[in-house]
Design a protein around this nucleic acid. Sequence first.
DNA 1: ATGTTGACTGACTAATCAGTCAGCCTGGCG
DNA 2: CGCCAGGCTGACTGATTAGTCAGTCAACAT
Lengths: 194, 194
Amino acid sequence: MSKKQSILTAATELFARQGFNGTATSEIARKAGVAQGTVFHHFKCKENLLISICDELVTKYVEGIKEAAQGSGTGWDALERVLWFSLNFMAERTESITVAFRETRVLQHEGGELHDHFSALMSQIIDVKRDCIERGQADGSIRQVDPYKTAFLLYILIKGIHHTRAHGLLQVPDLNTEVVEFWRQSLATGNPHQ
Amino acid sequence: MSKKQSILTAATELFARQGFNGTATSEIARKAGVAQGTVFHHFKCKENLLISICDELVTKYVEGIKEAAQGSGTGWDALERVLWFSLNFMAERTESITVAFRETRVLQHEGGELHDHFSALMSQIIDVKRDCIERGQADGSIRQVDPYKTAFLLYILIKGIHHTRAHGLLQVPDLNTEVVEFWRQSLATGNPHQ
DNA sequence: ATGTTGACTGACTAATCAGTCAGCCTGGCG
DNA sequence: CGCCAGGCTGACTGATTAGTCAGTCAACAT
């Protein structure tokens, strides 16, 4: 693993546990096994380290759900694949997700450019889910609900699970199958046109 | 408003916008219109300020849903009241909720005692919702779902809405009626025993 | 009058932080 | 071999921080 990568890994873990402002760059360096200066050799400033973590995460997630949505079958089938991908992604990338969701305010004040970049990426998440719903409504596999608001609720429920787990004050049971079944009951017709 | 209260108000607003570690006590004092020392006169340390904010919030919320759950009618009626109370509470107390959800890690390392205190309060939230569901299953107004996991999903969806709003990268539409309707469709039978 | 209390003040301090910089080390090239 | 580029180092700095403390002041009691 390159030094740059071990800095990213150490930073992700520390930011997740202690927060961005609660983590000293010297601590990141120590954990990564490099000198203080090396951190600033690879990242112009501490903030850029955070941006790197968030960017990599969101980009990978958007790619993943796009791929899951593109496969064959009905709109509901596609949506179910997106759901499962999201649930698995959440389990694998807990730390980065915690960081990306918690530290957004750092990404806000950056003259708007950075905010627009991430805003556009996040909108794609909603768009992919809405497309699945509209496709499902066209092929008869999904009920006539508001596609936009439902896409939001899909995103929100996944996000809520992550936050409740990450919060640490409640022991959250496994809910993956329940979540998919909840959405199947709310959305799927069971009778697509052939 | 007492100086103590104006310190709490200022701290809540600043913690919500900049995070706990991103806010200096001198900044809180300035915003509250008091001297630096006054902050430490009323709160032994910065952390206690955070604990005060969280404690007041969670206690009020637990009281609120308990009251909402106690009223007359079917289990579903009670659950619907709890849902609406939660949605309104979330709208009114956005800042404190943002702080309480984001800064928990600060409450963790406190020798476990503090963790246990908040953990117990949070468990009550799940318990109240589960009681409504079980009451609804007894009177026939709610379907035979897993009460415990469903109570979690109820909590999680509400939490998810807050976080998505607070995240600031997506413009979230109003979803209150949609949320209640989704749960009605998933849970309510429409045919309670009389 | 004198004493006591406690909210309140703001200058102060020891510690910590992000970021800098002068220079070290290593591998490739002529 | 000498030379160079650039990844890498860690001591250093100026700024900021949480928390302290000696003391002011107004209210009230004796």
